[in-house]
Structure formats: structure tokens, C-alpha cells
Simulated assay, not measured.
Amino acid sequence: MRTMTNTLLATLIAVAASQAMAQEAPWLLRARAVHIDPAGKSSPLGGNGAADRIGVGSKTIPEVDISYFFTPRLAAELVLTYPQKHGVYLDGARIGSFRHLPPTLSLQYHFLPAAGFQPYVGLGVNYTRISKVKLLDGAAGLEKDSWGAAVQAGIDYRLNQRWSLNLDVKKVTIRSDVFVGGATASRVKVDPVLFGIGAGYRF
């Protein structure tokens, strides 16, 4: 009887351990290289047609994001980076620069994986803090805060239970009023598309 009990207990422990190992780790940490391609449009106020020709330069930056999986399909992703510097151009001529810090929080749905590939879509909110604005030798400024929507689509390729490769595309709404002499002269629509490639680790 004792031998049977010990055997049953050992079997239950082995089954529980195998199930625990089979469960997905809830956290996913990714590092990406992200190319930022701004829309660079603006809406002139008061008939200032020159504002239509304002553009924001593109660039490639490092990015880190962390996701938490509430279920195997539903996750929340927080995108982090450090303040990024962008050049501002008028008719192709540089007229200044600014820095922005754009953390983004998204809710994602991950589809069933197939042959190691697992696509996902996401919808979230972006907050951008604009700082160190230098436009027209200080004659113009930008609004410091921007709130907007963020949409994304991506795909993970699972190398093993921990490691994966990632491709990701986001569209983020970032807009700021332009001030000249204390008056609002235009609204710049940065609205970048972000193309990312990187690697992820589950833990």
C-alpha cells in the first residue's frame, strides 16, 4: 500500500512539474531597432501657407519594450526609449530641432501560432513629452505635451520556448501646436510610422 501511495504521489508530482514547464512565461522583454518615419505635415492657421512646407526628419533608434501576458492571447505592452532628437525643416532647409520622449502602452491580441510564427495586433495610447525646442533661433516654440492613439501589427517567430525574433509596425499620433511670438501659428502632425525589428525573451 505504501509503495502504491509513493508511486501515485511521484506520478502526480511529475505531472504537475511537466505542466508547470509547459506553461508560457508571462513576461516578454524585447529589444528592437526602430526606424521612425514621420508624416511631417502641418495645418496652417490664419492663412499661413508656409506652414504646409514644414517637415520633421526621420531616424533609426534603439527601443526596449516589455509585455505581460494575462492569457496566452491577451497581453499589455509598454514601449520605452530615451528622448529622441529630430530635425525640423522648412522647404528642405533645417530651421531647428526638438526632443521627444514617446512612451506607448498597448493592449495586444496574439493569434494562434503556426509553424513557429505568431502574429498579433494592438491598440493603445501614446504620451509624448516634447523638450529642448530650438526653432528659428528661438522665435518659435512647440507645445510640450501630446496624447494620441497608437495602432500596431507584428509577428513573432519562436526560436524556442524563451527566444523569438520580431517584426513590428506602429502608427502613432503625435501632434503639437507651433507658437510664434506667443501666438499659435500652426499645428504640426508628426504622426510617425515606426518599423521595428528585434529579438524577444520570455521569462
Rank of each mutant, 00 (worst) to 15 (best):
L167F: 13
Y201W: 12
G154R: 00
T104V: 06
P83F: 09
A76I: 14
D37W: 05
L136W: 10
H86G: 05
L105I: 03
H100P: 07
T71Y: 07
G141W: 00
K85T: 15
N166D: 14
S176M: 01
I66Q: 03
R129T: 11
V188Y: 01
V34S: 10
Y68E: 06
H110V: 06
S131L: 05
F117G: 02
G124L: 05
V64M: 10
R94L: 09
T11W: 08
L135S: 05
P62F: 05
P83D: 12
F69K: 00
P62E: 11
A139S: 12
L9W: 06
V169I: 13
Q161Y: 13
G141Q: 02
A17G: 07
V125W: 10
I130Q: 03
S186V: 08
S164Q: 10
R99I: 09
V133C: 04
L112N: 15
K59A: 13
D37Y: 08
V169Q: 08
A76Y: 08
N160Y: 03
A153L: 01
R94H: 09
T7N: 14
S97F: 02
A114Q: 14
Q23R: 10
A150I: 04
A185F: 02
A10M: 12
F98T: 04
Y82P: 07
R158S: 13
I54E: 09
V79R: 11
Q152E: 15
R162N: 14
R175K: 11
R129E: 14
L90F: 14
R73C: 11
I174Y: 00
M21I: 14
L29E: 08
D37F: 05
H100Y: 14
I36M: 04
G200V: 01
G40R: 00
S106Y: 09
L135I: 12
W147F: 06
D65A: 03
Q118F: 09
V88D: 10
R99S: 12
Q19P: 04
G141F: 00
T104F: 03
A16L: 11
T128C: 07
S106W: 10
I54V: 15
L123F: 07
Y120P: 03
L105M: 04
D177L: 07
G154H: 06
V34R: 11
Q161V: 12
A22I: 06
H110F: 08
V169W: 12
V125S: 03
G57C: 02
F69H: 14
N166H: 06
